[in-house]
Design a protein around this nucleic acid. Structure first.
Lengths: 218, 218
DNA sequence: ACAATCCTTTTGATTAATCAAAAGTTTAAT
DNA sequence: ATTAAACTTTTGATTAATCAAAAGGATTGT
């Protein structure tokens, strides 16, 4: 059985590099997991030993097929739990990420399967992130960051890629919910901001924040 | 925040000595937790340091009020989770104990409270064990072990104090469910067995097993 | 080509939890 | 009252995960 720590390293490697195409830098991984680079190096060596990652010292690290499979399962557990907490237990989507972060390491496959049934085999979690199937397949959508939209574009929100509680509360308060249709009312590269119309109200966002909201054309 | 290990030690001390009247022996605690006596001693010293238990070396150990409060909360989480897994997720009562054993350490109070709402503020878990209130109070019932019943007694099953999966499956298969009314058809102290009639069928149990089934007079 | 800088890796220490086995207490039996 | 048996505690080691800080590569600028 994998420790929670190992599961977190694998999951984070997957999230930082979902396609498995690039190498993830030790420092990037360390930062994502809030550990020192030295800790990351030593865990990477352990994972490489176990055949879960491929490590090219000083260049980076990448999941093996085996590691990727395990990582995807952790992600599946996380996202099903999140949706369950929101849809069945009635929790707020801004709160469930941290809770799921704990639960993902202890819920059994059987519990996940029961939750999945109860939820009606959903394809996306409350933040719009795809839920991997039990076999490890991920539904793919072609989304673009809101920050790439042009003046006048009318789009619908498909994903919020920022799990921060306060940001999610802000999004909720301003009607920036999954499926909401919004229109770009202004965009100012110099001022680093974008203005959108959501439910008749103007909302101004910095481009960095808008980059973490993904949309599709309606 | 308490580690899972600490929570398990506290929980087990509570289960071995719910009234806090006697002292629990180091060896007894060690056995219940499947650790060596030496490990138990060293953890007991840590807990005593933290003010969660009172340790009289060579005599035994006992929860302090603070330790008891924490232990009761762990038990509450465990039992709510168990009932949730059975009533909401549709799992079999014989399977939920081990699952709850993991979940009890990571579910937040908020999740427990939502589960509690959804379950309608239950007082007992699927095995008939009382669920402590959020304030730490335990409902009390006066039950007696089935093994104490006399020939001809008609009683209803109120608690199954054996969490072993195979035993629970056996109980289920023989109609020995909570609330079931049974009658003692035979009792043989020499043969160490008791025979009961459950749903018209005779079921023979050893007295040790019958001792872990608790009943109340109908 | 040579530093300066920026990462990464190594080294040595620490903490929580555990075990095996030695040493120490208590209890019970003769 | 001594000794044996049973239990508890201590000791010394081990493992997983971490950190701080030293040492080692790689990259870039001049």
């Amino acid at each position: 059985m994998l420790s929670s720590t190992v599961e977190n390293y694998l999951k984070e490697l997957f999230l930082l590099n979902p396609d498995g195409e690039t190498q993830v830098a030790t420092g990037e991984l360390a930062k994502a997991l809030s550990v020192t680079p030295g800790s990351a190096t030593s865990m990477i060596k352990t994972l490489a030993q176990a055949g879960l990652v491929e490590h090219r010292p000083h260049y980076g690290v990448k999941l093996t097929n085996e590691g990727r499979t395990l990582a995807v399962h952790v992600v599946r557990r996380h996202r099903i739990v999140e949706l369950f907490l929101v849809n069945i237990l009635g929790m707020d989507w801004s709160e469930v990420h941290d809770e799921a972060e704990q639960l993902e390491h202890v819920v059994s496959d059987q519990v996940i399967s029961k939750m999945d049934d109860l939820l009606g085999h959903p394809t996306h979690d409350p933040h719009g992130d795809p839920i991997p199937t039990p076999e490890g397949t991920l539904p793919v959508r072609s989304l673009q960051p809101l920050s790439f939209c042009k003046l006048g574009d009318t789009v619908s929100i498909a994903r919020i890629g920022n799990q921060n509680t306060s940001f999610l509360k802000f999004a909720e308060d301003n009607g920036l919910l999954l499926g909401a249709t919004i229109k770009v009312a202004n965009k100012n590269e110099v001022a680093d901001s974008i203005t959108i119309i959501s439910k008749g109200e103007e909302v101004v966002l910095g481009l960095a924040a808008a980059g973490r909201i993904e949309v599709e054309f309606a």
